[in-house]
Design a binder for these strands. Structure first.
Length: 261
DNA sequence: ACAGCCTCCTGACGGC
DNA sequence: TGCCGTCAGGAGGCTG
């Protein structure tokens, strides 16, 4: 699923393919995926141009020539595809932009958990949203202040986009595995040293993910992601990983290394 | 403010 | 083979 490094790939992809082109026409498959509504979204985007694209966490912000902004979120199954022939349109295309030079950009989303929104004022949008600091910009001080003393399971806070924007389910599992901390640990029971470890692992994992452009095969061998599936075994112990549910999220752990306090 | 639960959606998968 | 029930999961909204 698209988390910070995957969404960064989409950012570069959109930047490399679609900037500067004028949108001639667009098709919206399901009105619920566009905010504030199909009609307004469509009217604001038509004849407009993408001028630049930035990212915070799992959100893309596509700046438009009229001063507005298109916010993109990819949910669980979102993706982008740029092509020149209509017959190359991928399955599950939910929004299709046709540029005046005849090329296309498709927003694909099989399970419709993603969405696109038109915002007149990005600053105002961000001020009203719960979106926090991108995980790459997060400092230990911010992280420590936001999580220390909290009663929630540590995994739930790692997934909280107002704390470290961009961390999703696989990255959270990876951080906890490499930190040797059980996802259900009450955050307030963690020592400062453990919070430091979580922070360092978070930074390192994101750094490697960005450097390899989320190509998991290039991740170091000890990473959980290589074995993060039913029947997978722990790189360190050779014993089976187990799947538990924490805060409603499927979580893979190595039970002899990640022990609940 | 915080924690926890529910909802949205649909392909994949297992059981019969 | 085919039908049906169950599951996954990010984020936003609601509740206590």
């Amino acid at each position: 699923m698209p988390e910070l490094p995957e969404v960064e790939n989409y950012r570069k992809y959109l930047e490399g393919t679609s900037l500067g082109k004028t949108i001639g026409e667009l098709w919206i498959d399901d009105a619920r995926l566009t905010k504030p509504g199909k009609k307004i979204f469509s009217n604001r985007l038509k004849k407009n141009r993408f001028t630049s694209v930035s990212r915070i966490g799992k959100y893309l912000f596509v700046n438009l020539a009229n001063g507005g902004c298109m916010v993109m979120h990819f949910g669980l199954t979102g993706n982008l595809s740029f092509f020149n022939n209509r017959e190359d349109q991928p399955k599950y295309t939910r929004v299709l932009f046709q540029f005046t030079d005849g090329s296309y950009l498709a927003y694909i989303c099989k399970r419709k958990f993603g969405w696109l929104s038109y915002e007149k004022n990005l600053e105002q949008y961000l001020a009203n949203s719960r979106l926090g600091i991108d995980a790459t910009q997060l400092t230990f001080k911010d992280f420590f202040e936001k999580i220390s003393g909290r009663n929630a399971p540590v995994k739930s806070l790692l997934l909280d986009q107002s704390i470290a924007a961009g961390v999703g389910n696989w990255i959270a599992d990876e951080i906890l595995y490499q930190s040797k901390i059980h996802p259900e640990t009450k955050t307030k029971s963690l020592e400062r040293k453990e919070i430091r470890t979580l922070f360092n692992k978070l930074k390192k994992i994101i750094e490697i993910s960005l450097k390899t452009e989320a190509n998991y095969d290039k991740f170091p061998k000890h990473f959980l992601i290589h074995n993060r599936e039913p029947g997978g075994k722990c790189y360190y112990t050779g014993k089976p990983l187990i799947r538990i549910v924490v805060g409603g999220r499927g979580s893979f752990i190595s039970p002899t290394i990640q022990i609940k306090k």
